[in-house]
């Protein structure tokens, strides 16, 4: 690791002002990506501003049909939160299969979506549930927020404060875990909104990062059941291929994971 200056911010405003002062500042949330990259000397921020201890970024709120998860809430707290289990159990399940226990005790929802790893779990949940990302400057729809591999709508120095999820009628998530990293080799989040809209998002599959799967959405819109997906064909074009999964395999996984997510949806 190169030398850096560490700051522990106590408020979002302080974090933003610390960020602006540094020459090459980076925000630190759970550190599950940034710290390993720094240790390998692949990143050398002048200043690291820790958001993890900011009180206003912690916690979960359920009000009516909206579930709000504050950005620096760790996966473990999301997984065990009673409101999450009640409102969107698929999110609770997603956090239970995210990484390993060490990751779940440190990683945060805000850190995950800000990094937008193409195989991260949470981007699929946001996209399928039609969530809204709240920052210290604005609100951004999930559709607009995720802009491809490791790319988001966030501007330099902008801080995610929370994610707001509309509570769906039904939602489910299934994931084939990457055998080494435990990211999603392919994960599919399916959701049916209370107004009947169906959204399906796949992560770990596309060369362009998290994506909607219109063919499966159409099939489920017509008939919300695993069998409805039987006839769907997913093209391997544009899908990721590596030593752990060919593009054809990932195409298959999109379909199979979607079917299982529908079966598990509550």
């Amino acid at each position: 690791m190169y030398q850096t200056t560490y700051h522990r911010a106590s408020s979002v405003d302080e974090a933003a002002s610390l960020f602006a002062k540094g020459s090459e500042s980076k925000f630190l949330a759970g550190g599950q990506t940034l710290l390993p990259v720094m240790k390998q000397r692949l990143a050398s921020p002048s200043d690291v501003i820790d958001l993890g201890k900011i009180k206003e970024l912690q916690g979960v709120e359920l009000s009516g049909d909206t579930l709000i998860i504050k950005a620096a809430t760790i996966y473990y707290d999301i997984m065990t939160n009673a409101d999450v289990k009640k409102a969107i159990p698929a999110i609770s399940y997603l956090t239970s299969v995210l990484g390993d226990p060490a990751v779940r005790y440190r990683g945060t929802i805000g850190g995950s979506i800000a990094n937008n790893d193409p195989a991260a779990d949470f981007p699929a949940a946001l996209l399928a549930l039609g969530a809204t990302v709240k920052t210290n400057k604005r609100s951004i729809s999930a559709e607009d927020f995720f802009q491809g591999l490791f790319t988001t709508a966030l501007e330099d120095g902008e801080i995610i404060t929370a994610v707001s999820f509309p509570v769906p009628a039904k939602a489910g998530y299934e994931k084939m875990r990457h055998p080494a990293s435990r990211f999603a080799l392919t994960g599919v989040f399916v959701a049916q909104s209370k107004s009947g809209e169906v959204r399906v998002a796949a992560t770990g599959a596309s060369q362009s990062g998290v994506m909607r799967v219109p063919a499966i959405e159409a099939a489920l819109k017509a008939n919300w059941s695993p069998a409805a997906i039987d006839g769907v064909t997913i093209s391997a074009n544009g899908l990721l291929a590596d030593i752990h999964g060919t593009a054809e395999y990932r195409a298959n996984l999109i379909k199979v994971m979607a079917q299982r997510a529908v079966a598990a949806a509550r």
Binding site: D100, P179, A180, S181, I243, H244
Partner: peptide, 29 residues
């Protein structure tokens, strides 16, 4: 049998030089 493989590409570059790519067995495997 199920997980581990030290792989090189055709030019001799290691593809699996970290635990993010080289799958060591874990308790739940």
């Amino acid at each position: 049998a199920l997980l581990e493989h030290a792989i090189y590409d055709a030019n001799g570059q290691p593809v699996t030089a970290s635990f993010m790519d080289y799958a060591m067995p874990r308790a739940d495997d």
